[in-house]
Simulated assay, not measured.
Amino acid sequence: MRFSLGFIRFFFIILSTFFITTFMVASPKGSLLSNTVLGISVGISFSLALIVLDTFFRKWKLRSFSIVLLGLLFGYLMSQALLLSFNTLIDITSISIHAPASLLEFLKLGIVLFSLYLGTIMVHSSSKELAVSIPFVNFQNKGGRSKTVLPDLSTLCDSRIIDLASSGLLDQQIVVPKFLVEELYVQMESYDDPQKTKARKCLETLKKLEGIPSLGMQYIDIDFPDVKDITNKLLRVARKTDSHILTLDINRIQIPVPDSVRIINLNTLSSALKPSMQTGEVIKIKIQRFGKEPKQGVGYLEDGTMVVVNGAGNCIGEIIDAQVLSVKHTNSGRLVFCNAYEEDALCQEYENELLHEQ
């Protein structure tokens, strides 16, 4: 690749130098030697200037170049329409009589520049939805396009979505329908305190997501007034926009889901990112309460995983060593079953014997 690029540049330098030198030599002004030297100098300088521009434009992608070209095209058409209206306004009024010609030319130039800039900005802002195809060329990038993600109300009520968004994994992918925000404001006005608290938490989560610069969260104005259920509305939006749904309560989605729409469970994603535990591994756990079975204690890891420890019923409030028996995956997360480590169990039995003797 480097060899071919270097060859192309070298060939273009020779070609430019040859044509410019030939043009300068054919000029009747000046001597043959001076025209030859001047032609060679101008040709090499012109070629090097183009190579410098080439290294600058190599950072640009074809998509960016096509956006600029389409923006200039739309801006040019817009400027022609505005200039036509401007000239008509001048013809039917007395502005052309009192205004100097230089001012009118300056206004026309301002209209053209304004139209070109506005057209480019509009094309850039709608570049994701814009697809322009010509024979053998397609400016729409279908292969590398990532699907957007629609979070539901249960996801917005969980603060883990903020940590997930801050990781950069969902940059330029989170899309929130406006009817979800409207539903939250309706719930804020209800007399149900738990519902009002959840709605307030969801709105706070949205504000924090808006404050993440790299996330680029977008709001879309797509609604289905004939559908009353929020979950069914979200499914229709996901089908229309070819998006996935991020949820915390997958049991609420009971209707058939199209093949193009995937339901992503936040709990499943969180469990997949937790460090795995092997059978026989010894962990430290603080026993916080009694379990369902006799002599059974329950504790929690730092990530919230519940740990059930057999033989730890007498260790409430203590940090003990526990040996992992098995790890069970449920809809709400992982569940770790352990046995109290033998050394801790023997120490506990010894302490109980001392207390009994006293």
Rank of each mutant, 00 (worst) to 15 (best):
G75T: 00
G75Q: 00
Y76L: 02
Y76M: 03
Y76V: 01
Y76K: 06
Y76R: 01
L77P: 12
L77G: 10
M78R: 02
M78N: 09
M78L: 12
M78K: 03
M78V: 07
M78D: 10
S79F: 01
S79N: 04
L82W: 03
L83E: 01
L83G: 01
L84N: 13
L84M: 15
L84W: 13
L84T: 15
S85L: 15
F86K: 11
F86Y: 09
F86A: 14
N87M: 09
L89C: 13
L89V: 15
L89T: 13
L89A: 15
L89W: 12
I90F: 13
I90W: 11
I90K: 11
D91Y: 11
D91F: 09
D91R: 06
I92P: 03
I92M: 13
T93V: 06
T93M: 05
T93H: 08
T93Y: 12
S94Y: 10
S94D: 09
S94G: 12
S94H: 12
S96I: 07
S96L: 08
I97Y: 09
I97W: 04
H98C: 07
A99R: 04
P100S: 15
P100R: 14
P100N: 14
S102C: 05
L103A: 09
L103H: 04
L103W: 14
L104A: 09
L104D: 08
L104C: 04
L104H: 04
E105L: 13
E105S: 15
E105I: 14
F106A: 14
F106M: 12
K108A: 06
L109P: 05
L109I: 08
L109V: 06
G110A: 14
G110Q: 07
G110R: 10
I111Q: 05
I111P: 06
V112Y: 11
V112I: 07
L113G: 02
L113Y: 01
F114R: 00
F114G: 01
F114C: 05
L116F: 05
L116D: 00
L116T: 02
L116G: 00
Y117R: 03
Y117C: 11
L118K: 06
L118P: 00
G119C: 00
T120I: 06
I121C: 10
I121Q: 11
M122N: 04
V123A: 12
V123G: 08
H124E: 14
H124S: 13
